[in-house]
Amino acid sequence: MRFSIYRYNPETDAKPYMKDYEVDVPHDSDMMVLQALMLIKDQDETLSFRASCREGVCGSDGMNINGLNRLACLTPVSSLKAPITIRPLVNMTVIRDLVVDFTLFFQQYEKVQPYLQNHAEPPATERLQSPEERAALDGLYECILCACCTSFCPSSWWNPEKFIGPAGLLWAARFLADTRDTATEERLANLQDPFSVYRCRTIMNCTVVCPKNLNPAAAIAGIRHKMVEKGS
């Protein structure tokens, strides 16, 4: 099976180019794209990509495969049409080949203060939640920060610095939904400008590509609802 892979090495290349590789994929193979990349790396050890857990938990191997951002480790080769085109995540600075710079992505993540804030005296054991309160976090806390969504969001393409992007906003929603967190008002006030949240046009590219099947678009809608409630 033919793979066409985006290559760029700043040490040697003037600009990025696509390079083709052949990989033997048995007819009924359950090979994932990540395994295919490893086989390609056996052929050509200069190929660079990130990977770690190889089971969709670490979020290292997000890349654009046949036009959609996805995790290489969770994408079966058999689900794709040949030739398989693999490019780095969209609209992120390429460090080398499929490895991209996450600096801005993590800056956006830090903006939403992705940690529990509660200045009340801690109880002797834990801050307890009812099962219902805990259930409110489902669909929000599972994000692995792979950047598939933010890198595929048109609003992030046009305003990468001002719009926080679906991943960061999903995390904002996660702490807004947490009954143990007491910084709700400050969090909402920090997000009220016309860009941070409101650049979202509910295009839903984030939801389409999320490898964990989360719905950042709905989470962002939830943030807007909370703002309307608090603001009125």
Partner: peptide, 21 residues
Amino acid sequence: MVNKLTTDMSLTGNGLRDWIV
């Protein structure tokens, strides 16, 4: 979170208010 100057030409300068309007 965003520089005020860049938002002053929006209708209300506030994302929530613009959205509601």
